[in-house]
Design a protein around this nucleic acid. Structure first.
Lengths: 349, 349
DNA sequence: TTGAAAGCGCTAACAG
DNA sequence: CTGTTAGCGCTTTCAA
């Protein structure tokens, strides 16, 4: 009782398979597989024949089949908060570099700070059978990531300190960074400071807020009075513009503004200027990330610098190590940020 | 003669498979597949049992197996020249949006203008069995792409006009854009213009150069004299800095500078400034792409604006259409750019 | 509505 | 050194 199983839908002529190559070369299927994977086990003559057939048929091995059978995994996924943010692209560069060195490849995705998109990519990558993932979580709920890790998928938290023993992370001390930024503003005699922040579902927003509060309190100020917080929905230039508009509409604006990142600061400065306010005279501005154009802006932006590329490199290393033989234990790595003072805060000499 | 076939290397406990679920739920393997793919064909009771088992075992279907068997493809690859360039990330945004609407997913990669890296990703994506790829070629040799397309993989050229009938492309008229930029500089009485350009292996560099030559000739100038071309190896800020350094070292620098893109212009302006030159008084500068921070720079940058996001959207649409039922014929789409005059060229009112 | 079985393309034993 | 074969996890007939 031989039945014909269903066939996959085909675009164009069927792709050549290993057995087509075998037939063309007049050898067995296993031999073709050998020239592909262990060429030294095959006689030069046969190898040449097979190679010719491969060339002739433009044979490209089917990765799904190979992975299904052999579990050969050299792909790593990264899910970043916002791929349009130079900070994250620089991190991605670091990741890619390290991965390429180890002959692995990166598949990149942007969650756009949306937990649902994040979940979609998490699942896609898992189904695809990646070696592991580097993720900048878009949500505070790390449970899905923990489960992933329990299921044997390598997970490294990126730009976010792991709250759990079981998860590796590579991050920068955002609390300290924000505190430095705000201390700087306080040292310039600002006593009420606006803070354009993103949703509290994003760790960076929580931590930078905490840093600000800490600095305010250390200076003997009451955060409820000294901090004017504006929450915007996306951490980019549009968000910054919206934030300033809201801030100015509310009247009695503070004399200084701390922005959760440089992109937001960029938008904020644009809006400030279009409202006729001078930076830093009418409003001092400090950003976060020290992206590459920060120093070149109309008013060079005071910002908090992070070892961006290193962040990516170390995260990739960690993942590779955790997935490799020996299964290294989870590690939490934290870098320290650095304040770069420029004209936008009025604090430059 | 029953032999035990080799097993795949396993990280941790083996991932649950569909037959584990079947066993747990006390049904057959085919039924589990049905609740996954055609839930309506299964009685509510059975479905519930199976769903419970899936939940209990944290079952995640194996994408490789599914794809191998069914050819279910919803993944699209994009290989961009430089993911750190805001122009390309904006394009990526456009692509992702459209793809998400069609319930497909994007896998992103950056060739960093390196044909070898490009080839690696091309192959990786093909092995993975993507529906198609959107690529900004890092080389003038399109043969690999054509072959890919002949093998049935959808290919759309991004930001590069297709020279071949068989390949779709979505691009912006770079020749016209560069011509506009240079005409602008000529109208400001500059008669010798430096051009920081990238390698001629990149189409954008070739076309923008052609546009410059065209504008120069149209003005009755000899390009050999009027154009001072500096070739840098990467189209980013570092390249721009290096270009200016080289330009100034050569002596008798022109009075104007056209940069192949805004990132290059950013670096060029930084170098110009560090050499004590004023923009635009000592050197007028024009960039290309009109990235989001162009208007916010110390000296706002005159640049050529392109319908960036649309580029990505249309390219994704084309790919989806070409891969969908009906197999639409290849199309060449070209947008027109627009000059945005700001202070850096000295041409703003 | 459910179960049994074929087979997608490949790798890795193993026999010859 | 080469061929044969089992089976990775899944979808999809077809039969019951």
């Amino acid at each position: 009782m031989v039945t014909t199983a269903g066939r996959a839908p085909q675009r164009g002529p069927r792709r050549a398979s290993i057995s087509d190559v075998a037939q063309e070369a007049g050898v067995s299927l296993g031999t073709v597989s050998n020239v592909l994977n262990r060429p030294d086990r095959v006689s030069p003559t046969t190898r040449a024949k097979v190679l010719a057939a491969i060339e002739h048929l433009s044979f490209v091995p089917n990765g799904s089949a190979r992975q299904l059978r052999a579990g050969t995994i050299t792909t790593v996924g990264a899910i970043l908060l916002d791929i349009a943010n130079p900070f994250f692209t620089e991190v991605a560069r670091g990741i890619e570099d390290r991965l390429a060195q180890a002959d692995h490849t990166l598949m990149l995705a942007s969650s756009d700070e949306d937990p649902e998109r994040e979940a979609r990519y998490l699942r896609l990558f898992e189904e695809h059978g990646v070696l592991g993932m580097l993720v900048t979580p878009a949500s505070t709920d790390l449970e899905p990531l923990l489960e992933l890790s329990r299921r044997g998928v390598g997970v490294v938290l990126l730009d976010r300190t792991s709250p759990a023993e079981e998860l590796s992370s590579v991050a920068v001390d955002d609390v300290a960074g924000a505190a430095m930024a705000v201390e700087h503003l306080l040292s310039l005699s600002h006593r009420r400071i606006a803070f354009i922040n993103g949703p509290q579902s994003i760790a960076q927003c929580v931590d930078r807020r905490a840093g600000m509060v800490r600095a305010l309190e250390a200076a003997g100020l009451d955060p409820d009075e000294a901090m004017v917080e504006i929450t915007v929905s996306s951490l980019n230039a549009e968000g910054g513009e919206a934030g300033v508009t809201e801030l100015l509409a509310a009247g009695t604006a503070p004399s200084a503004l701390f922005c959760v990142n440089d992109l937001t600061a960029l938008g904020a400065m644009r809006a400030l200027r279009s409202h006729g306010l001078a930076i830093p005279e009418d409003m001092a501005v400090v950003g976060y990330d020290d992206v590459n154009f920060a120093s070149m802006l109309m008013t060079p932006l005071t910002s908090v610098r992070q070892p961006t590329r290193q962040l990516g490199e170390v995260a990739a290393d960690l993942l590779l190590k955790a997935a490799g033989p020996g299964m290294a234990a989870p590690q939490r790595i934290e870098f320290q940020p650095e304040l770069v003072v420029r004209a936008s805060s009025g604090g430059a000499r």
